[in-house]
């Protein structure tokens, strides 16, 4: 067939797709493999976290005190007052203080001795068992020390609560 001869003699053009080839390869790698890798990584991280949370939950169910211990150790930090390190002489010199020299018998004479349970001047009885129901406004630390003259001194220090 003469058309076959014609087709056999056709000059087939060369193609040079170099820049496009490189670009397409990069895009394919990114869209297929990197996307797949990201999904796999996300799944791995999610499943690992899930396992950790599941283990933690199971441990909490079997041993609830662990949660309390963890809370105390990780979140609730308490300070320790080192009384040995305090120089009371200096403290007395520097800090605001109120010194009352009031002999006990003189106090009684002035009518200042009074039991807490006996009530106050307004006549309302103050029951000891009500103390637990009262809201705490501010805590203080009371230290009893003795100075060089053998006098008893009570130091009342503010305590700032840690939140």
């Amino acid at each position: 067939m003469s058309v076959e001869k014609y087709l056999e003699n056709i000059r087939v053009p060369e193609v040079h797709p170099c820049p496009f080839s490189v670009r397409l390869k990069h895009n394919l790698r990114r869209s297929i493999y990197e996307k797949r890798r990201r999904i796999e990584l996300t799944l791995k991280v999610t499943s690992s976290l899930g396992i950790v949370v599941s283990i933690f939950t199971i441990v909490m169910i079997y041993n609830p005190s662990l949660a309390n211990n963890l809370h105390n150790n990780l979140l609730y930090k308490t300070g320790v007052v080192k009384t040995e390190a305090i120089d009371f002489e200096q403290l007395l010199a520097e800090k605001r203080q109120t010194e009352i020299e009031l002999p006990l018998d003189q106090g009684i004479a002035l009518g200042m001795k009074q039991n807490v349970s006996q009530g106050f001047e307004d006549g309302q009885a103050f029951q000891v068992n009500e103390l637990s129901e009262l809201p705490e406004e501010k805590p203080y630390i009371i230290r009893k020390v003795r100075d060089k003259n053998n006098r008893t001194i009570y130091l009342i220090s503010d305590v700032n609560k840690r939140n």
Partner: peptide, 30 residues
């Protein structure tokens, strides 16, 4: 790549169309 690109180019005779078609071919194949 070159085999497929050459075939598509011979069929469509337009570089932009060939690029579009070859992209689709390889994306679908892979």
């Amino acid at each position: 790549f070159l085999q497929i690109y050459k075939f598509v180019m011979l069929r469509v005779r337009d570089r932009d169309i060939a690029n579009e078609v070859v992209s689709d071919v390889f994306y679908k194949a892979m």
